[in-house]
Design a protein around this nucleic acid. Sequence first.
DNA 1: CTAAATGCAAACTATTTGCAACGAT
DNA 2: ATCGTTGCAAATAGTTTGCATTTAG
Lengths: 129, 129
Amino acid sequence: MSKQKDTLLRLIAANKGHPSAEELFLECKEKNVKISIATIYRNLNLLVQEGKIAKISLPNEPDRYDSRTDTHIHGVCDRCHAIEDFEIAELDAFLAKQTGLAIHSYDLTLHYTCAKCRKKEALNIYSWL
Amino acid sequence: MSKQKDTLLRLIAANKGHPSAEELFLECKEKNVKISIATIYRNLNLLVQEGKIAKISLPNEPDRYDSRTDTHIHGVCDRCHAIEDFEIAELDAFLAKQTGLAIHSYDLTLHYTCAKCRKKEALNIYSWL
DNA sequence: CTAAATGCAAACTATTTGCAACGAT
DNA sequence: ATCGTTGCAAATAGTTTGCATTTAG
């Protein structure tokens, strides 16, 4: 595994926020790891194929990458688009039972307003104070 | 509502397969409705804003459009990529209860092998017969 | 007659690819 | 010396935008 590929894997694992290719590019620069955007995309695709990371698609946004490849849940804030991970242990069984299907895997994204944005909103509401 | 916009809305409602912009463009041609790809995208975005259709994003594929805007479930076949709709009435309550969040909406995509492809697979397995 | 919607072509964003140079065995 | 990996720049896919023109009320 080349230095560039290894760096990407580490950055994705370290970054809780599910970074995009562009964000990884900037993070590499900050860490003084020399890499081109083409190599980023090439390695991201390789890592996905190898099953070491997963790709996340959302409307009107560049793809993001996730160090977790097991089935889990994404929560995205409708205000700031931050992504968090969630776990619902009983969901697999629940879905299998309700649908009667042999489900290989599933993608679940919850939309809500995150705690930070709720706080901001509350401040704005009372901004005249 | 212009003829073009109306046509798009109807085509999306009629097409069970969740069509992409390009597919809608071709369907319009077949129906002899004159429309440019720019107008397609413009109207699709308007219809999404108006809450009349929904946009679906999947990795490595163009965005697709859905005539259903209520929260429901997509099932996609891992072999042929066909998309079906599902309903699980109790899911909303289940998610709210398990996460404790005020969930605006959610996107759930199930991955499996659809009935058609399962049948094909079975035939292949016994193809020497 | 006016405002809204369209078509065309150019622009733009995200991503991929060809190819020559580089780097590690 | 070889084979995989890289950087660069050009190419591509999907989508958006500016602007002159058309359409509908």
